[in-house]
């Protein structure tokens, strides 16, 4: 399923909304999640999962092509942990 298919499904269920509004609704939800993480916040959606920011320490990496050692700076990455309900549903519990 891609973003446009998700928008279509929501639009089909809500005939009183314009397609354009549904696009904004879906876009707002995903933007809010990114904004929160960009601010270092956690996003917890019970039953679905939680998005959090994890710090990756600076490390000495290697250029896989040349084998040369390179410094990799400290960075922050987005992390998603599946919620209990969704995890159980994936395994038909």
């Amino acid at each position: 399923m891609i973003r446009s298919e998700l928008v279509q499904k929501i639009a089909d269920e809500n005939p009183h909304l314009y397609q354009k509004d549904v696009e904004r609704i879906v876009g707002t939800i995903f933007d809010e999640i990114i904004n929160a993480m960009a601010a270092g916040d956690r996003v917890e959606l019970r039953g679905f999962g939680a998005f959090s920011v994890k710090k990756r320490k600076a490390r000495l990496g290697r250029n896989p092509r040349t084998g040369e050692a390179v410094n990799v700076a400290e960075k922050h990455v987005a992390f998603f942990k599946t919620g209990k309900l969704l995890r159980d549903r994936l395994n038909r519990i």
Binding site: A36, G40, L45
Partner: peptide, 13 residues
């Protein structure tokens, strides 16, 4: 920060 965004904040948005 220690803030957590939940369904409530998404509804508000």
């Amino acid at each position: 920060s220690e803030k957590t965004l939940t369904r409530m904040e998404l509804n508000e948005a």
